[in-house]
Write a protein that binds this DNA or RNA. Structure first.
Lengths: 175, 175
DNA sequence: CCTCATTATGCAACTTGTTGCATATACTAG
DNA sequence: CTAGTATATGCAACAAGTTGCATAATGAGG
């Protein structure tokens, strides 16, 4: 059910094509929701069938036509309803942590290399989020409520990555 | 693919019934892997068919028979292979954070109540993990490698919950 | 006495997410 | 000149996860 609302949320902010939504889920919303383009295109079709979206085909000569999706009144209603329902805590399924439960079978060097790769990735992500923070949210006190909550979601992303990095430090020290 | 290895990991530690595995995924491994009993029983059947497990039916007169699953040599081999492959980072899909992207549709009181409910849950979990830490890992320096890595996975759980609580503090202060 | 929680297993239907493939053009780097 | 990246969409098959239901006995609490 929830990808549906992730798309409605994003389109509620501003209309977009499937391609643009894919990018948002990778970038600005990467911290909050992930989905592949295949999944997104499929779900957009369903939402259109369900009458929660409108679509406008923007013709292009050089590239495939863009389909610009826009949330409509029914979509807004559905979204507003969902937003005020309590959300489920997401399930945890982390294969790397899982491997640590069979640590006696693990090659220490392979694991160290994996940690380093992850650390690089976490640092890259953190730098990205920090850049968004500086660009859009340098004065969080003055933000309208809408953006204040988005800012707090971003803060969650930043704190989460800092925790991963701190944990990686503990692990490297212990090994 | 990965529930398969989660079960092999857990059975690699010690043989168990589906019921016990369900409990482990809720308790000691809750931080690392979640799965419902339905999913677990189904997957145990597949692993048995694939020849990675053995099963022994323990008769009980008062209750349904227990089926005790044990990992076999083929299972150990498969697990050892998987453990040394790099793991994928899990996808992020958090409905609560998602809602914050449509913050203008949100009832502030409903959200505050939700935050408080989550905070209570995070605190409860944290207390549980801390209890495990004290019981089993009071002298982490002296642990054999196998348990040292499990301890570090638990540390990750503790740090993750602390971060959620710190974030909740930031949110409450901001609102 | 009755209901609820615990132990213990599982099927069936459904929804969600992944993987592999396909198409088509323009621009950039080597 | 050729390979790769970016734009832009999508189908089909498959794997994984959820939800609802079913069975069956014991013990505890009201």
């Amino acid at each position: 059910m929830a990808l549906k609302y992730a798309l409605l949320c994003s389109l509620h902010e501003s209309s977009a094509t499937g391609y643009e939504l894919t990018q948002r889920f990778r970038e600005r919303m990467g911290n909050v929701w992930n989905a592949s383009h295949q999944q997104i295109y499929r779900e957009l079709g369903k939402l259109l069938d369900a009458g929660l979206l409108e679509v406008e085909t923007v013709h292009q000569t050089d590239r495939p036509d863009r389909k610009l999706y826009r949330i409509n009144a029914a979509g807004e209603t559905a979204l507003a309803e969902w937003v005020n329902l309590p959300a489920k805590r997401p399930a945890v399924r982390d294969p790397m942590l899982l491997k640590m439960f069979a640590g006696d079978l693990m090659d220490p060097n392979a694991f160290s290399r994996e940690l380093v790769r992850n650390r690089v990735e976490w640092e890259r992500q953190l730098a990205e989020y920090r850049a968004i923070e500086e660009e859009f949210f340098s004065h969080p006190q003055q933000l309208p409520r809408h953006y204040q909550l988005q800012y707090l979601a971003l803060r969650r992303g930043i704190m989460g990555l800092q925790t991963w990095l701190a944990w990686a430090g503990e692990v490297e020290e212990a090994l």
